[in-house]
Amino acid sequence: MNYPLLNKTAAVIVFLALWEILPRFGLVNPMFIPPLSAVLATGLHLVENGELVTHTLVSLERAFGGLLAAMVVGFPLGLVLGGGFPRLREAVGPLMELFAQANPLILAHIIIFFLGIGQSARIFIIAWLCLWPITFSVIDGIRSADPLLLKAAGSLGLGRVGLFTRVVLPSSAPTIFTGVRLAAGYAFIMLIASEMMGASSGLGWLVAQGQENYHVTRIFAGAAVITTLAVATDGLLRLVERRVVVWKVNTE
């Protein structure tokens, strides 16, 4: 009686069917929640005239540009602070905690003074947001390396570099992946917000335009694409994680 996969598929089908039927029969106001087919039609139309592809690419460039920049800065920073400089880590700990609280949209106004209103300002906003979860997770991952494992590996005559690359990094990989996935989630949330504020392209702008012109199906089509991208990115990172951290499966 227990077919989990069937149940899940059935639940999804019921959900989509309700989305179609409820607005069609006026059970919810189609002005607010248009039926699925109308949203799909709008989506198709946006694909055909090329708008959707353009804005998706712009948004992806910003999101991944920011995430990548955050990784480029965050990994070395985390390695340095988590690896060999405990007093430095102590000294900058609260400062980084404060920086992590600095909402990048608030900083946006300040950043624009320096970088202007172009693409680099938006990438910087995303990068700032992603930097902190990544840095913190690298520090945590390195610091939580099992001391027993280190002792055992050290007794086998592994040098400092060997210890680091062969023991510390692999054992901290799961924590680091968690941080990166968290950062990617943040990146998408804030990207849309920043694109709704004074951008002239991107998926967030598409949605904001839909709102200003009362194109409800556009809002939903845009939101669906944004959600799909977020889910796909998270799925991709999970996939990479499973490939890299093969041994974690055994312990869970």
């Binding site: 989990p4 149940n7 899940k8 059935a10 639940a11 999804v12 959900f15 002005m31 607010f32 929640i33 989630g185 998408f188 949330i189 849309i192 917000a193 709704m196 998926l203 967030g204 949605v207 904001a208 839909g210 709102q211 009362y214 409800v216 809002i219 939903f220 845009g222 939101a223 944004i226 959600t227 977020a230 889910v231 998270d234």
Partner: peptide
């Protein structure tokens, strides 16, 4: 268990893309 995929997707729905809908 049946709802899990839907809940996962809903939790990833961007709050800012919902803001216009909520405003409406």
């Amino acid at each position: 268990q049946a709802l899990r995929p839907i809940l996962t997707v809903l939790s990833q729905v961007n709050p800012f893309s919902l803001l216009p809908v909520f405003l409406l």
